[in-house]
């Protein structure tokens, strides 16, 4: 390469660099970025269309919604590392806590800002078994019977799996007069029946549904119903255990980002719409339990949810901050139950 072509190459590089590094001019149309977790893909696809229409009617402005999906913890890390999220809609409060703690981009008491612990919809953990329930699985106790294999993702890498683990723990407590040692023994026994610990909830669903592994899949209720739509309802059945946990996937505005982007109004409207009758109806349609079921337009969507004995993370585990550290932190209970004796 001679000197001239070399200098031309450098000029080209110098021109290309700012584009590659994202110094694009701001888009004329305003954009709202929602950083969400995996199983909300279908819900937010519908909800975003609803919001765009709603916002146009309200303000006359066009708005574009960008949603990114992925494991809840990974998504939280992206926001910590600088992903410009206007709102976060994640699987568990501790992931948003982590954003608040690491970046101060939203206040520590963010969860008090919206009704119902900032969770516009909830879910719970149920069992998905093979059609006809060949192993006769009725409740948590049946999962530790000899020969039963349980599929659940790894609580260390999957937010959803932490709800699974805590639901099992709640059963262990209830069955043993609130003795934490016995609850731990139950959960430890349960994880001995787990042949594969996938890194995320969708991975576990694949392992169970497509690879044919295991007799029961611990799944979010909405994922269990979704798998019917995906794989046909002649293959699986849902079993509702005697006790489960109220899973509250929370939503929050990332204050520092909306200030910078000038999107506070839109972000607020976006989250509030989740609590509106239309938003609640969409949540119910996508198998999330709406927090205001009475406002849902299609009553059949609500009636299919069974009444269950649900414990909450705050009452039984003293909140996410405590549960996270005690059970899933480095050297926590989950690490302990896998230690070879």
């Amino acid at each position: 390469m001679n000197r001239r072509s070399a200098s031309r190459l450098f000029a080209a590089l110098a021109l290309a660099a700012p584009i590659a590094f994202g110094a694009l001019p701001a888009a004329a149309q305003s954009t709202l970025t929602n950083v969400s977790y995996d199983p909300t893909r279908e819900l937010y696809k519908d909800f975003n269309a609803l919001f765009v229409k709603h916002w146009k009617a309200e303000t006359g402005e066009d708005i574009k919604i960008q949603v990114s999906h992925g494991g809840s913890g990974k998504q939280a890390r992206s926001v910590i590392d600088g992903l410009n999220a206007d709102v976060v809609t994640l699987a568990l409060a501790s992931d948003i806590d982590a954003i608040a703690k690491a970046t101060n981009k939203l206040p520590a008491d963010w969860q008090k800002r919206l009704p119902n612990n900032s969770s516009p919809y909830t879910s719970t953990i149920v069992f998905l078994v093979r059609k006809g329930n060949p192993k006769g699985i009725k409740d948590w106790g049946d999962l530790v019977k000899p020969g039963v294999e349980v599929i659940t993702p790894n609580p260390k890498t999957s937010g959803g799996a932490r709800w699974n683990y805590l639901a099992a723990w709640a059963y262990g407590l209830k069955q043993n007069g609130d003795d934490p040692e016995k609850a731990k023994a139950f959960v430890a026994e349960l994880f001995k029946h787990v042949p594969v610990l996938d890194s995320g909830a969708r991975g576990s669903t694949t392992t169970f549904a497509q690879r044919g592994l295991g007799d029961v899949l611990l799944a979010w209720e909405n994922e269990a119903y979704l798998s019917f739509a995906e794989f046909g309802d002649d293959k699986f059945e849902i079993v509702f255990p005697s006790v489960s946990i109220l899973a509250e996937p929370p939503v929050a505005i990332v204050d520092a980002n909306v200030e910078k982007n000038g999107t506070r109004k839109a972000a607020e409207a976006y989250l509030n719409l989740l609590y509106s009758p239309e938003g609640q109806s969409l949540a119910a349609k996508h198998f999330y339990r709406p927090v205001k079921p009475e406002t849902v337009s299609n009553k059949a969507d609500v009636e299919r949810f069974q009444k269950l004995d649900l414990v909450t993370i705050d009452d039984t585990f003293g909140g996410w901050a405590k549960a996270q550290k005690e059970h899933f932190g480095d050297g926590g209970v989950f690490d302990e139950i896998f230690k070879p004796k």
Partner: peptide, 27 residues
């Protein structure tokens, strides 16, 4: 590897997964 490993601690857990787990704990 992650899709075929099983990821059971002390048996089929690979070192990069340990790194991912630590990241998942924001550590």
């Amino acid at each position: 590897v992650i899709f075929i490993a099983g990821n059971v601690p002390y048996v089929s857990e690979i070192a990069p997964l340990i790194i991912i787990m630590k990241l998942e704990e924001f550590d």
